[in-house]
Amino acid sequence: MAKIESYRDLIFWQQAMDLAISIYEATRTWPKEERYGLTAQLRRAATSVPANIAEGYGRESRASYQQFLRIAQGSLKEMETHLMIARRVGITSQEVAEGLMSRSESVGTLLRLLIRKLSPE
Rank of each mutant, 00 (worst) to 15 (best):
R8A: 06
Y24L: 11
S75A: 07
R87T: 07
F68W: 03
F12V: 09
T92N: 06
V107R: 03
I85L: 14
A97P: 02
T27S: 15
D18M: 11
G58Y: 02
K117I: 03
R87S: 04
G37V: 12
Y57K: 10
P120W: 10
W13G: 01
Y57G: 00
R35C: 06
T81Y: 15
A54M: 06
G108L: 08
L118S: 01
L110P: 00
L10W: 05
E95Y: 08
L38Y: 03
A86L: 09
Q67M: 14
P31Q: 14
K117V: 05
L19E: 05
I91P: 02
G90A: 13
L114W: 07
I23R: 01
Y57D: 02
T92I: 14
L113K: 14
P31F: 10
L10I: 05
L118I: 04
P50I: 11
V89C: 12
T39I: 06
T47Q: 11
M1Q: 12
I11Q: 14
R88P: 05
I91M: 15
R70Y: 04
L113D: 09
Y57N: 04
D9H: 05
R28G: 01
E34F: 04
T109R: 15
Q15W: 08
R44I: 03
L19M: 12
Q41H: 05
I4M: 05
W30R: 07
E121T: 12
Q14R: 15
A46T: 02
R62A: 13
R28S: 10
L69Y: 00
L19R: 06
Q73P: 01
S22M: 11
I53H: 00
D9A: 04
S106D: 14
P31G: 08
A16L: 05
T47K: 11
D18P: 01
E80T: 06
R116A: 10
M1L: 11
R88N: 15
I11A: 11
I4C: 03
T81H: 15
R103A: 05
I91N: 10
E98D: 15
S22D: 15
L38W: 00
H82G: 02
E121F: 12
T47F: 13
E34Q: 08
S106H: 13
Q66S: 13
S48H: 11
L113Y: 13
Q94G: 04
E25S: 14
T39S: 05
L10M: 11
M101P: 01
E60V: 13
E105Y: 14
V107T: 01
S48V: 11
A46R: 00
T47W: 12
I115A: 03
R59L: 13
E105T: 12
T92G: 15
S93V: 05
I23H: 02
I91E: 15
Q66V: 15
E95A: 14
Q94T: 13
V49Y: 06
R88Y: 07
R103M: 09
S48K: 04
S64C: 09
E105H: 13
E33C: 08
R35A: 12
K32F: 06
M1G: 13
E98V: 11
Q14C: 05
T92E: 10
F12K: 06
L114T: 08
E60Y: 15
L100P: 00
E98L: 09
G56T: 08
